[in-house]
C-alpha cells in the first residue's frame, strides 16, 4: 500500500526537476545574456521551491521540515539578488540588449 503523502511528494519533486530541466533548455535556446538570466534565475527558484516542498510533504510536520522551509526562504531572498547583481553589472558594462527587429544586439 503506497502512502498518499508519498505520491504527492513524488509529483512535486518531479515537477521541480521538470522546471530545472526547462531552465537548462532556456539557457541553451535564448539569444542573449539578459534573457538567459530569466531562465537561470527564475525557473530555478520555482524548481527548487517545488523540490523542497516535496521533501517537506514527504518528511511530515517536524523540525526538519522547518529547516527545509528556511532553506527555501533563503533561496527565495538570495536568488533574485544574485540575478540582479549579474544583470546590473552587464548593464553598467554596456552589454547590448537583443531585440526582435535588430538581431545581434544594439538598440
Amino acid at each position: 500500500m503506497i502512502d498518499i503523502r508519498e505520491i504527492i511528494a513524488v509529483i512535486m519533486i518531479a515537477l521541480g526537476i521538470l522546471f530545472l530541466v526547462i531552465s537548462a533548455v532556456g539557457m541553451l535556446r535564448l539569444p542573449d545574456f539578459y534573457s538567459r538570466l530569466h531562465a537561470s534565475g527564475n525557473s530555478e527558484t520555482l524548481g527548487m521551491m517545488l523540490m523542497l516542498l516535496g521533501f517537506v510533504v514527504y518528511e511530515g510536520a517536524n523540525l526538519i521540515s522547518f529547516k527545509l522551509i528556511f532553506i527555501f526562504l533563503f533561496v527565495f531572498i538570495g536568488n533574485p539578488i544574485g540575478t540582479h547583481i549579474l544583470s546590473k553589472t552587464a548593464f553598467k558594462t554596456g552589454e547590448p540588449v537583443w531585440t526582435k527587429d535588430k538581431e545581434g544586439g544594439g538598440k
Binding site: 530569466h38 527564475n42 536568488n79 533574485p80 539578488i81 540575478t83 540582479h84 544583470s87 546590473k88 548593464f91
Partner: peptide, 15 residues
C-alpha cells in the same frame, strides 16, 4: 520591489 520584479519570471531588474 526590485527583488519582487526579479523574482517574477519574465522580468529582471537591470538598474
Amino acid at each position: 520591489l526590485a527583488n519582487s520584479i526579479t523574482l517574477t519570471p519574465g522580468t529582471v531588474t537591470m538598474n
